[in-house]
Design a protein around this nucleic acid. Structure first.
Lengths: 217, 217, 217, 217
DNA sequence: AATGAATGAGAGTTCATTCAT
DNA sequence: GATGAATGAACTCTCATTCAT
C-alpha cells in the first residue's frame, strides 16, 4: 500500500509539479504585465525600459524574454490586456441601463471611477495611440465593437432617431475620443475642471444628438 | 585713408554682416524647423534624431545647438510653430462665416484640406500629445483660445442657447479632440471612411447641440 | 503472492530498467551529438546554441547537462566523434591500395565522396580549427597518426625515396591541409573547379614528390 | 599687413584645421585597426569585443561606430588591411628572385619572418577563414592573384613544365593553404618542428613538382 | 535521469551632447 | 557662428548555466 501510494503520490506530485510550474510561470508573466502598467503609467512607454520593468516585477532581466518576444511585443499586448480589466468594470456598471443616454451617463462615470482607482491606466491608454499603435488598434476594436452594437440596439429600440445606421461608427469614434480626451484633461495637467461638470456637459451634448426627431441630411 | 576707409568699410561690412548673419541665422533656424517637421512626420518624434534633422536641413550637426538648447527644446517649439501655419490656413477659410455651424463646417473642411496638403503635420500634432507635451499644451492653448472666444461670440449673437457660458471650454475640447481623432482615422491606417461623410456626421452631431432651445441642467 | 510477484516484477523491471536506461541514455547522448553535427553544419559553432541543439535532438534543455559538462566540452568531443565516421569511410576505401599514390588517389576520392554525402561534416571540421581547437587537435592526431604510419609503410616498401623519415610528418600535414583546403574550395562558395580536375592536379603534385630518386638535401 | 596676414592666417588655419581633423580622424581609425589586430591575435575574433578593442585603442566605445558601421564590417576590413602589410614585406623579399623555386624559398622565409615579428597576424589570418569569411576571400584574392601571375611568368620563362596553365590556380591554393597550415603548426601549439626544417621539406616537395619534364595527364 | 523556468553577465549598437578647431 | 569627431551612458537582447521539481 505505501508503495502504491508512494507511486501514486509520485505520479501526482509529478503532475502537480508541472501544474505548479505552469502556474508559477503564469504568475511571473502577470507580475511583468502589472509592473509594465505601473512603469508606463509613471514614466511613459519611452521610459519603460525592460530593466526597470523587471526590477519592479522582482524578476531577472532575462526572465522577461521567456514571456515576451521583445519589448515591442509586450507593448502590443499591454493595453489590450489591462484595457480588458477597465472594460469589465464599465460593463458591470452599465448593466441594466435603460436608454442610450443612461448607458452614456453610467459608462462615463464608471470610466472616470476606474481611472481614479487605476491612475496608471490613462497613460497606458493615451500614449498607446502613438507609441503602441498595434495595441491601440486592438483596444479600440474591443471598445468600439461593444460601443457600436450598443448604439445599434438602442436604435432598434427606437432611440437615436437622428442618426443613420451608417453614422453610428463615426459617432462612436467621436464619443470615444471625446471621453479619452476629457479624461486626459481631468486626470492630468491643470485639472481645473471637475469630473461631474464635465460629465454634465458631455451628456448635454450627447443628449442633443441622441434625442429628438430625424436630423436631416 | 585706406585705413579709415578700411575701417569704415569694415564697419559697414560688419553692419551688413550682422544683418546678413541674422538673416542667415534665421534661415538656418527655419531650415532646421522645416526639416524637423519633415522627419517627425515621416519617422515620428522618436525617430527624429538630431543627426537626421540636420542632415536634411543641410547643416552640420553642431549647428543645431547654436539654435536650440536641446532636442527637447526643439520639440517644445516645433508644434506651436508649424501649428500656427495650419491655424492661419483655417483662419482665412472661416473668415466671414455667418454662424457657429458654418464656422464648424468651413473650419473642419479647411483643417482636412490642410492635412491633405501637409501630410507631415498630422503626426507632428498627434504624437505631440505623448511625446512633446509642452508643445501640445501650447498648441492647444493657441487653438482653444480662438475656439472658445469664437463660441462666445456666437453665443453673444444669440446662438448656442443650449450651452452655458462655463460649458464652452469643455465643448471646445470635446470638438477639438473629435476633429483630431477623426483626422487620424481618415488620414492614417484603414481609411474606410470618406472625408465628406465624416464631415456630415460631425456636423449633424454639432448642429444638434448648437441649435434648439435651452437644453436644461 | 501478488506482493512478491510484484516485488520480483519490480526487481526485474528495475534490472531491465537499468539496461534500458543505459541504452536510452546512450541513445539520448547520440541524439544530441547528431543534432549538434547538424546544427553546427548549418549554423556554425557560434550559432549552435544549446537550446537549438536540444530542440533538434528532441530533448529538454536541461537534459544536455546530464550528458555533457558544458557546451565547450561537447564541442571538444564532436569532431573526434563524427570524424571517426569519416575516417572509417576512407579506411574502407583505401583498403588494398597497392602504392602510396594509390592510397592518395582512392583516399581523396573517398574523402570527397563522404563530404558530398555528409554535407554537414565539412563545416564541423573546418570551423573546429578556430572554434574547437581541442577537438581539432584530437581529430588531427587521429588522422595524422594513420597517415604518417601509412607513409612509413610505403617508405619501407621502397617508395618515397626522395623523402627522409623525419620529413614524413611535415609532408603529412601539408597534404592534409591541402586536402581540407581544396575541399573547402570545392564544396563551398564559388565551386568553379570540378572535383576530378582538382584530384588530378593534386595527384600530379604528389606523384612528383613521391616518385623518383633521392631528392637531395 | 597684420590684418591681411591675420586673415590669411585665419584662412590657412581653417584649412589646416580641416586637414588636421581629417588626419586625426585617420589616426583614430588606424588606432582601432591596430588594436583590433592585437585583440584578435590574443583573444580571437570571438573574444574581440568592441569594448575591448576601443579600450586598447584608447578611444571611447562610441568612437568605434564613427569609423566602422558594425563589428562585422570591421572584421571584413581587418585582414585585407593588415594582410597588405604582410604582403608588402614578402614582396620586398622576393624581389629579384631568379626562379619559381627561389620565389618559394625567399617568400616562405619572409612569411615566417613576418609572423615571428607580428605574432598577432597569424590568428587574424587563420580564424578569418571561419569567422570573417568575406575578409578571408578578399585577402585570398589579393594573395592568389599575385601568386598565380608569378607562377604564370615562371611558366612563360620555361619553368614548371609539369604543370598545365589551368592547373596553376589549384596549385596556388594548395601551396597557400600548406604555407598557412605549416605556419599554424610552427607558431602555435606544440612547436615541435623548426622553421628551417619545415622550409626544407616544403621546398623539396615543391621542387619535385616544379622541376623535371612534363608530368603527364 | 529528465525537465524547463529563471538567471544575469555581457554583448552590439544608438545618439544627445560637448568642444576643440 | 559653424563644424563634426569624440564621448559614454543607456538601451535591447542573447544564451550558457543552474536548480527546484
Amino acid at each position: 500500500m505505501p508503495k502504491k501510494t508512494g507511486l501514486v503520490a509520485l505520479h501526482i506530485s509529478r503532475h502537480v509539479g508541472r501544474i505548479d510550474r505552469k502556474k508559477k510561470s503564469e504568475l511571473t508573466r502577470r507580475a511583468i504585465v502589472d509592473a509594465a502598467e505601473l512603469v508606463v503609467g509613471e514614466l511613459g512607454y519611452q521610459g519603460a525600459s525592460i530593466s526597470e520593468i523587471t526590477r519592479r516585477a522582482g524578476v531577472a532581466l532575462g526572465t522577461f524574454y521567456r514571456h515576451f518576444e521583445s519589448r515591442e511585443k509586450l507593448f502590443d499586448q499591454l493595453l489590450p490586456e489591462v484595457g480588458e480589466r477597465m472594460l469589465e468594470h464599465v460593463r458591470v456598471a452599465i448593466h441594466g441601463a435603460q436608454s442610450a443616454l443612461e448607458v452614456e451617463h453610467t459608462g462615463l462615470e464608471a470610466f472616470f471611477d476606474y481611472l481614479s482607482r487605476h491612475p496608471y491606466f490613462l497613460r497606458v491608454l493615451s500614449e498607446a495611440q502613438s507609441l503602441a499603435p498595434i495595441a491601440y488598434e486592438a483596444h479600440l476594436k474591443n471598445v468600439s465593437r461593444r460601443y457600436i452594437s450598443s448604439l445599434r440596439r438602442s436604435k432598434k429600440r427606437g432611440e437615436l432617431k437622428r442618426l443613420r445606421e451608417d453614422e453610428l461608427e463615426t459617432v462612436a469614434y467621436m464619443l470615444m475620443s471625446a471621453r479619452e480626451y476629457l479624461a486626459s484633461r481631468l486626470y492630468r495637467s491643470g485639472k481645473r475642471l471637475s469630473p461631474s461638470s464635465v460629465i454634465q456637459t458631455y451628456l448635454k451634448f450627447v443628449r442633443a444628438a441622441f434625442e429628438g426627431g430625424n436630423g436631416g441630411t
